[in-house]
Design a protein around this nucleic acid. Structure first.
Lengths: 243, 243
DNA sequence: CGCTTTTTTGAAGATGGTCAATGGGTGTGG
DNA sequence: CCACACCCATTGACCATCTTCAAAAAAGCG
C-alpha cells in the first residue's frame, strides 16, 4: 500500500547505481508505519535513535532549538528522504525532526541497515552518498542565509525545494503542497516576518512564483532560478528532472 | 616524519572505536605529501577528485565561489580533518578547498579507502561518522549565521574552532595560530568587515578572547562559551578536551 | 455570518552596511 | 638608525536595510 521499499529504491537511484542484489537487500528491510499530524516531534535533540526514518508522504523538517526558545529550521524533507540518516552513526541527536502538516513515515531499525551495509557495501555507499548530499544541502543553506539578500535568498530556497520535489515526483504540474507558514519561513531563512512577506511580494510581482497558504506555484521557473542564482549541481542527481 | 597514519587514527578515535585490525588496515594506506603556501586551491568546484585529503599541518578551508566573485567560507580544518571527505562518493565537487596560510596535507587514493571499507566495514563506519560530524558542523553554521547577532556569532565561531583545535592537540596553551584575516572572517560569518571588527572589540573588551594577526588567545573560556551560547555536543566527541 | 488563522501593511527605530580616512606595526632600503 | 611604504586593523559618519511592534485586511472554516 505504501510502497516503502520502492520509495527508498527510487530515491537512492536518483544518485546511485544499484544492482538487483542491492535492491533485493533493500527489499528485505522490515519497517513500521506511522501517521503524524502537524508539528509532532519524530526525534528530539538529545535522543539516541535506533530507527531510521523514511518519509513516505507529506513534509518533515529538521530544526535546532535555540536558547531563546525560537527554532531554526535546517532543512525540509519529502517523499524518499531519510531525515535522520545523520543519526545513523551518531549517539545523540544534535537536532530534532518534526512533521510539517500531516505526514506518513516508515521506520527501519538501524541494526538491519548496518547489517545490510556489511553484507553489501554498495548499499551502504548509496546511503552514505545520500547523507553526503544532505551535507551539500546544508552547505548551500549556509551560503544562502549568509551571503544572499532576502529576495534572492527566498527565490533560491524555493528553487531547491521545487527541484527536489520534482525529482521525487510529488509535484502537481507547477504546484507543490508545502504546509509551512510565513513565521516558519522566517525561522528558516533567518529573516523577520515582515521581510519574508515583502520578499514573497517581490517574487509574486515579478511573476516568478506564488506562495500562499501552504501551496507553492511556480509561475516562471527560468526567471526564478535566475533571481535565486540557483544551479542544481550541488544536489548531485544523475539526471535532472524536467521543469 | 609526518605520522600520517597516526594522525588519522587519533582523529577517528576521537569519535569512534577502532579494533587493532581496523588500525592495521588504516596503516596500510599509501599516501603522498604536499606542502602548500597561503591560498592555494587543493580542490576546485567542479573537480572530480580521486584522492582524499588529510590535513597534517596548518589550516585548510572549504568555500563556495559566488556569482559576484566573492567567497563564502563554509568551514575550517586542522590536523586530522578530512576536508574533502564529502567528495568520497560524489562525482563533482560542489565547493572548493584551499589552504589558509602554510599547510601540509597527505593525499590517499579513494580506491584504497573504498577497498578498505569493503574489507573492514568498521573502518568505513568511522569515516562515515567523520562525514556526519562535518554535517553537524554545517548545521550549526546555518544556525549561527542565521539566528545569532554578530558578537554572539563571532564568539560561537571561535568556541568551535578552539574546541576542535584542543581536541586535535594543536593549541599552545590558550593560544592558537589561525592565519585568517578579518575580511575572510567577514566572508565566513556573513557580516561586513566593520562589524567583524566591532564584534572582536566587544569580545576583547569583555576579556573573553583576543584575535589579532593570525593569533587567537582565549582569555576566559567560560565567559566566551556563555557569550557564544556554545554547547559542544554537536561535535560528538567521545571525551571532551579540557580547556 | 462570525470567528480564527494567516497574511499584509505601516511607521518608527535599531542595526548593520558602505565608504573613506586614520592609525599601527613590520620590514626594507637608504 | 631613520624614513618610507605597505599591509592590516581600526574608527567614524552616514545611510540603507531589516527588525520590531502594532494594526488592519483577507482568507478559511464551522
Amino acid at each position: 500500500m505504501y510502497q516503502v521499499h520502492q520509495t527508498l529504491v527510487s530515491k537512492l537511484k536518483e544518485h546511485s547505481r544499484l544492482t538487483s542484489d542491492d535492491v533485493t537487500m533493500i527489499k528485505s528491510f522490515s519497517y513500521s508505519i506511522r501517521n503524524l499530524i502537524h508539528d509532532e516531534d519524530i526525534i528530539r535533540q538529545g535522543d539516541d535513535p535506533n530507527l531510521a526514518v523514511l518519509v513516505i508522504l507529506g513534509t518533515v523538517a529538521r530544526y535546532h532549538l535555540l536558547q531563546s526558545g525560537r527554532r531554526q529550521f535546517l532543512s525540509f524533507h519529502v517523499k524518499g528522504d531519510l531525515p535522520d540518516a545523520q543519526g545513523l552513526f551518531l549517539e545523540k541527536m544534535d537536532h530534532a525532526v518534526c512533521s510539517v502538516g500531516n505526514a506518513t513515515i516508515a521506520s527501519i531499525p538501524h541494526k538491519q541497515m548496518i547489517k545490510a551495509f556489511e553484507l553489501r557495501p554498495n548499499v551502504g555507499f548509496a546511503i552514505w552518498r545520500e547523507t553526503l548530499i544532505d551535507g551539500a544541502i546544508f552547505r548551500e543553506a549556509i551560503t544562502n542565509n549568509s551571503a544572499r539578500p532576502p529576495t534572492v535568498r527566498m527565490a533560491h530556497f524555493f528553487c531547491e525545494l521545487f527541484y527536489r520535489a520534482k525529482a521525487a515526483r510529488i509535484t502537481d504540474n507547477q504546484t507543490l503542497d508545502f504546509p509551512v507558514l510565513l513565521p516558519q519561513l522566517a525561522d528558516t531563512l533567518g529573516m523577520a516576518l515582515a521581510t519574508v512577506n515583502r520578499s514573497l511580494s517581490d517574487l509574486r510581482d515579478a511573476r516568478a512564483l506564488d506562495f500562499r497558504l501552504a501551496k507553492l506555484t511556480i509561475l516562471d521557473w527560468k526567471r526564478l532560478t535566475k533571481v535565486g542564482q540557483f544551479s542544481p549541481s550541488y544536489l548531485h542527481l544523475r539526471k535532472p528532472p524536467s521543469i
